[in-house]
């Protein structure tokens, strides 16, 4: 199985599935552990936050303590079209679990899942609200059929926060559907988009089979998988719940972390490093964190242009 994202939903799904004793779990995440994650991201500890460990690495370490018989592969990186297609082609997972925090990645995952005919289970939450739905190629419509458009901003935990029980509820829906798929009990699947609000005590469920569109670019008669063919520009994304922007260079770079840290120190910048990343304080409340593959997080801004400027100023 593959879990895309190792935040709150990723950590919850991973622990439940590893305790259930699945054979192999791959978990991919681009971020590292911070103090504010500990309120809900159950695999991580204060020591992980102090060390700024990449979430995929910290997750793997904890999961191996929980059940050493499950093979865990940790990928520190962005879940873009190339990465997810490579995983699909090489590993042929039985199920994808969506634990991402944005719709751009979900629509890429939706395309990859339908192209390689692998079920995926959507999950999302914000505040006390959450929802989930299993998308199964050949059996159900896809996420794009439901959305008809790409949602723009304003729908993440950035402003609303999140309570732990909402995470656990979504995790429960996702894991239950995953277990049904793993034992091939297809008749037991819910077949509905389900949502709840644990604060206002609401619940809703909508049967999705009727929304399948024959001209859907992902699951219709002539699929083009539009989200796999985005041109290779420098990509930037505001991170969920954080005053941060991720910058992803058009071509993957390979930095020697030690050399990179030394370069920043020579510029007189306060620099800390671990084997996976370098963190640099830039003053004015801004920090730059660079991973070995050239991805960077610019903290202290939500302005994508400002973040790109900072990235290229320091990394060229």
């Amino acid at each position: 199985m593959v879990i895309v994202g190792a935040g709150a939903l990723g950590a919850g799904n991973a622990e439940a599935l590893v305790r259930a004793g699945i054979g192999k779990l791959t978990i991919i995440d681009r971020d590292y552990v911070e103090w504010s994650n500990l309120q809900r991201q159950q695999l991580y500890s204060e020591a992980d936050a102090i060390a700024r460990l990449p979430k995929a690495i910290a997750a793997k370490r904890r999961l191996e303590q929980i059940n050493s018989e499950v093979e865990i592969e940790a990928i520190v990186g962005d879940a873009g079209p190339e990465e997810l297609e490579a995983i699909a082609a090489e590993q042929r997972p039985d199920v994808w679990i969506d634990a991402t925090d944005n719709f751009d990645t979900r629509l890429v995952l939706n395309d990859v899942a339908y192209k390689y005919r692998i079920p995926w289970i959507y999950g999302a939450c914000v505040g006390s609200y959450g929802l989930s739905c299993a998308f199964i190629p050949g059996r159900t419509p896809c996420l794009y059929c439901l959305l008809e458009t790409v949602p723009q901003g304003g729908l993440t935990c950035d402003t609303a926060g999140i309570i732990g029980p909402a995470v656990q509820m979504v995790v429960s829906y996702q894991v239950a559907e995953a277990l049904k798929m793993l034992v091939e009990d297809w008749a037991a699947l819910r077949g509905k988009l389900v949502s709840f609000d644990l604060w206002t005590n609401e619940y809703a469920a909508v049967r999705i089979d009727a929304v399948k569109k024959e001209d859907c670019p992902t699951c219709g008669r002539h699929p083009s998988y539009p989200f796999l063919s985005y041109d290779q520009r420098t990509k930037a994304a505001v991170l969920c719940g954080r005053d941060s922007v991720q910058i992803r260079p058009p071509v993957q770079r390979e930095y020697e972390i030690d050399e990179l840290a030394e370069m920043f120190r020579r510029q007189g910048l306060q620099t800390e490093a671990n084997p996976y990343l370098v963190a640099v304080s830039l003053g004015g409340g801004k920090r730059l964190v660079v991973f070995a593959d050239g991805r960077a997080l610019v903290h202290g801004t939500k302005d994508v242009h400002e973040a790109k400027t900072i990235y290229y100023r320091y990394l060229g």
Binding site: G5, F103, R106, C125, G130, L155, S195, A204, V206, C240
Partner: peptide
């Protein structure tokens, strides 16, 4: 009536 709205967080 059933209304389900999408959110992105996770």
């Amino acid at each position: 009536i059933e209304i389900v709205h999408f959110v992105g967080g996770g």
